[in-house]
């Protein structure tokens, strides 16, 4: 596969911070500026393309040295007490436009593998064709969508419904539901993944043995396996950000306010108000996992 981006693809120089392909700050600055103008979407897309390498399984935004540093010397957050918070997320599917900025921001922020089958968050498209009672579903990883962008790292929904009549269509962003009764935690043989007191389900990647039982046990397909690290990866609501009072990256970049995040212990937080003021539901309630991501405006077809 050759793309024009390969010409400017450089291996990250680990010695200096300057030469890291795209730091988080630069990326978010980039997005911040870009969000003002219409060209923002295309800009961010090509920025992602910078990180594309020949072997997509090893393409990290964070290089190995940075990764080991973050594991061995995690940042201290002195003022944070996890007993004081109860984090939750809301998704207003009526607002989602399927731009996939959340997913790209997540990949950058959390060094998720840069390919079409490892995601911490993703977006699904549900389309009712005229006269049909069931929805046609695809995600950004659908082969046709990938073919359309000619790249495994630039994700777009294609325009396949251009010439057909559509009754109803909507996007549903997905991510880890940080369940109250997480089946992934239940099945972990070592206790490497655990439910934190403030809500998110976290993974100790220095203790995970990589058996992938949790990948099987997650009803939502939220977990993936990082072959290079030999451990499992999942959304943790950007735990490194929320403990410092920031929003998760996906919430930060969402241009339409689809994703709502906050502390349920605070009755005036965006999420408390969202849950209070809307009819919300959770995905697959029959699983008994009691998710902490609340959806507004989903549909019977949403799985």
């Amino acid at each position: 596969m050759t793309t024009p981006n390969e010409k400017i693809d450089k291996k990250p120089d680990t010695k200096t911070n300057e030469s890291v392909p795209l730091s988080r700050r630069r990326f978010l600055e980039f997005l911040g500026k870009g969000a003002v103008c219409a060209g923002a979407l295309a800009g961010a897309g090509s920025a992602l393309g910078l990180s594309e390498t020949k072997n997509p399984k090893r393409a990290f935004q964070q290089n190995d040295e940075q990764y080991s540093e973050s594991i061995n010397n995690p940042p201290k957050v002195p003022d944070y007490n996890w007993n004081d918070h109860q984090w939750a997320m809301g998704v207003d599917t009526d607002r989602c436009i399927g731009c996939l900025r959340c997913m790209e921001a997540c990949k950058m922020e959390n060094s998720v593998q840069m390919d079409a089958f490892h995601f911490r968050t993703w977006v699904e498209r549900y389309v009712y064709l005229e006269g049909s009672n069931t929805a046609v579903v695809d995600s950004q990883s659908d082969p046709k969508n990938i073919e359309n962008t000619k790249s495994e790292t630039k994700f777009r929904f294609d325009n396949r419904y251009k010439n057909v009549k559509v009754d109803k269509a909507f996007f549903v962003p997905k991510l880890c539901n940080q369940c109250e009764h997480p089946s992934c935690v239940q099945v972990c043989p070592t206790g490497a993944t655990f439910k934190s007191k403030d809500g998110p389900v976290l993974i100790d990647t220095t203790y995970c043995i990589g058996c992938q039982y949790c990948v099987q046990a997650c009803p939502y397909g939220a977990r993936s396996f990082n072959e290079s690290r030999g451990t499992v990866d999942k959304c943790n609501w950007c735990y490194h950000r929320i403990t410092k009072g920031l929003n998760p990256a996906c919430v930060e970049v969402c241009p339409t306010g689809t994703r709502i995040f906050g502390d349920r212990n605070d009755p005036e937080s965006p999420i408390s108000l969202f849950i209070k003021n809307n009819h919300v539901q959770v995905l697959k309630p029959e699983m008994g996992n009691a998710p902490n991501v609340f959806y507004k405006g989903t549909d019977k077809e949403v799985v």
Binding site: V185, Q186, V187, Y207, I209, G210, G230, V232
Partner: peptide, 28 residues
């Protein structure tokens, strides 16, 4: 086969040292 399958086979004994008893696999 399980050891070959593990992403981190050198940590296999973690399941023996600190078994997480709610897991069906912990007792293996």
């Amino acid at each position: 086969p399980l050891l070959f399958h593990l992403g981190q086979p050198t940590r296999a004994f973690n399941a023996l040292i600190t078994p997480h008893w709610t897991s069906a696999m912990a007792a293996f």
